[in-house]
Simulated assay, not measured.
Amino acid sequence: MAEKTFAFVDEFGNFGFDFEEQNVSSHFIVTAILVKEKDLEDLHSQVEDIGKRYFPSGELNVSADKRMQVLQEVAPLNFTIFSVVVDKRKLHTDSGLGYDKSFKRFLSGRLYKQLLHTFPHLQLTARDNGSKEFIKEFKEYMHSRHQPNLFNQSEFGFVESPSDVLLQLADIICGTIASGYDQGMKSDYYKKFFSILKERWIRIDEWPGKKKGYTVDLGDLEDEVAEYNDIIADLSLERAQEFIRKYEFSEEQYKRDQVNFVKFLLLNLEYNRHGYVRTDEILRNINAFRKNQLSSTQQLRTNIVAKVRDEGVLISSSDKGYKLPVCVEDVIEFVNHSNIIIQPMLSRLKKSRDQILRATKNELDIFASAEFQPLKKYFDQ
């Protein structure tokens, strides 16, 4: 039996769509703090100790400075964060999702499918009270959809809370995410918050997804190529999103790994568009969704990165890691990195071919086979 994962779930926002009203949120956010069963007791004890020091009265009114301090203390602990963020402003009321019941049902389906597909042995805990608009609907949705049987032995469902302090942690994290999205909660500190928790994020699933807005300054490159930045950014994001839509719910493990890899690059792009993601970070993120852990960077390159590129997704790489390209500079850096590898390989191939041709008086060409014709043509030219 696979090890259980516990999820402590909290929500932010409400289901109103009249954004002129003072208390109507622009976003609705559901956040799960995920912890493996073997780490549950230690995490509970550690978070309880932090809570006693920062919230002795039990109240969770968190200033920006105190939130920063709390996040710095919880960042090294053994848990991960999974969140769904819905921008309600982008939903069209005439689609049916502008109504409370249909919106709740849609969001329940999206969250259920994402979590069940990724964590079949997940035990969820959430406060079910009048202030939580979504949790009750989500529970009802799960009970109607998820019926374990002889062929489906997953332990996916709600359980009684073994830890109020971890629900409080979920509340703090959910509020932290809201400070980066919601029009009434926006904070200039959000990027710092996000950076502190960098090792803990495994997914922020934004819906509807973003398509534009990822352009960067080319720096020292010539001004005339800057006009292509938007084209590269749009193409890069479009191909990444197409790949996710195509394979998001594949039953094949490596396809799921590839989707999680692309999603992680998208997440990094949102908050660190100039930066690359290191290989060890990528492996850690992929393994958060895996029963059997990947440890080989060769597996990452061969079974994940290369296969994603084969599908037409644009991925830049350098000695700093991987990223989705959003400007000409990203693409050129990828070409430079590839050139360092490819040119010496081609040179060695040419030397080997030339030596064998000379030794056999031009009778044996190692590029004579049909599959090597592109190489033969390249060197003949």
Rank of each mutant, 00 (worst) to 15 (best):
K88D: 00
R53V: 14
K113F: 08
I135F: 06
F119L: 09
D164I: 08
D94Q: 06
A75S: 09
K139V: 15
V62T: 08
N149A: 08
D65V: 09
N152A: 12
S163G: 06
R105N: 10
K90F: 10
I172V: 09
G96R: 00
F82C: 09
S63K: 05
E48S: 13
E133Y: 10
Y99Q: 14
R89I: 10
R89C: 13
N149R: 08
R105Y: 06
R145N: 14
F156N: 08
V47P: 03
H143E: 13
E160P: 03
S154D: 15
R53I: 12
E59S: 11
L91A: 04
R67F: 05
K88C: 04
Q147C: 11
T93M: 11
V62G: 04
P56R: 06
K90N: 07
Y141I: 06
F106V: 08
P120R: 10
V165S: 01
L167Q: 07
V84P: 04
Q147D: 12
I173M: 02
D164G: 02
Y54R: 05
L115W: 03
Q153N: 13
F156I: 07
D94S: 10
V159C: 03
H92V: 15
Y112S: 04
V74W: 00
K88A: 00
Y141E: 04
R145M: 14
N129D: 12
Y141W: 13
F158W: 09
I177A: 05
V47R: 00
C174F: 02
I177H: 01
Q147K: 11
L169M: 02
G98P: 07
P120C: 15
S161L: 06
L122F: 04
N61T: 09
I135S: 03
F55W: 07
F151Y: 15
E160L: 09
S144Q: 14
V47W: 00
F138L: 08
F158C: 10
G98V: 08
D128C: 12
S108A: 10
E137I: 06
T93S: 07
T118W: 15
F55N: 02
S144L: 13
E73F: 09
R145Y: 09
K66M: 13
K139T: 14
L60H: 01
D171T: 07
F106K: 07
D94W: 10
L167Y: 00
V159T: 12
P76T: 03
S95M: 15
H146T: 03
D128H: 14
L107V: 02
Y112F: 11
K101C: 06
P56Y: 05
K66T: 12
L167D: 03
N78Q: 14
E160C: 13
V85G: 02
D100L: 12
H121E: 13
Y112A: 03
A64H: 14
L115R: 01
S102M: 12
I173G: 01
R110Y: 01
N129P: 04
F119P: 06
F103G: 00
S154V: 12
R145L: 12
I173C: 03
F158T: 14
D87W: 04
I135D: 03
R53M: 14
G130P: 01
F138S: 02
T118F: 15
T93K: 08
G175M: 05
F134M: 06
